[in-house]
Every structure is written in C-alpha cells, then in structure tokens.
C-alpha cells in the first residue's frame, strides 16, 4: 500500500487586492461615466447599448468615450489618466 508524500503546489494564488476599493466611497447622485473602447469592430456598438442601459438605471451627468489605439496593447497612460481625472467609473468592453 502506498504511503503519503509531500507534493509542491504549482499554482500561484491571485494577488490580494489592497486599498479602500470603490465600495468605501459614497456613490454620487449623478455619475460621470467613462467608456473605454478596445478598438475592435463592434465594441462601439456594444458600449453604446451599455451606456443606454446604465442611463436607464442611474443618473448620468456626462459620458466620456475613449478608444484604445489598438486592441492588443494596454490603454496608454494618457487615456488612463484622463479617465481617472474626469469620470467616476469606467465601462470597458472587448468585442470581436
């Protein structure tokens, strides 16, 4: 009969998120909505539908729509900075 032995776990756990998190902030009465388009065909259509759905649920003060130059790379710092400055939350979508 086989005995037990010790085996190494090959998996890394997901990093633990630190910081306040969005739930720590009181949501504003009206949100400034950010839209990040991944630049693939149909992302704009999908996001436009999502904006309408969000508007039906909450008061939206403004919508800022930005588009990544290319789908395969992360959004450049300028886009992320602008979203950080000018909106309360961001909806992003990939659409192939």
């Amino acid at each position: 009969m086989s005995q037990s032995a010790v085996f190494v776990i090959p998996e890394a756990p997901a990093p633990v998120q630190v910081g306040e998190g969005p739930q720590a902030k009181k949501p504003p009465r009206q949100i400034r909505l950010g839209i990040l388009d991944n630049s693939k065909g149909n992302a704009d259509h999908l996001l436009a539908m999502i904006v309408e759905m969000v508007k039906a649920e909450v008061q939206v003060a403004s919508v800022l729509s930005l588009r990544k130059p290319t789908a395969g790379l992360p959004a450049p710092a300028e886009i992320l900075d602008q979203l950080t400055r000018e909106v309360d939350c961001v909806v992003t979508a990939m659409a192939d």
Partner: peptide, 16 residues
C-alpha cells in the same frame, strides 16, 4: 518537505 508544508506551498497525498 516540512518547511514547504508549514509555508502552505505543498500538500500531502498518497504517493502514487
């Protein structure tokens, strides 16, 4: 092996 178990990076199973 004891060190790995104590650090939570290993498990014990039947050696089969």
């Amino acid at each position: 092996a004891q060190q790995l178990m104590s650090k939570g990076v290993a498990l014990e199973a039947r050696d089969d």
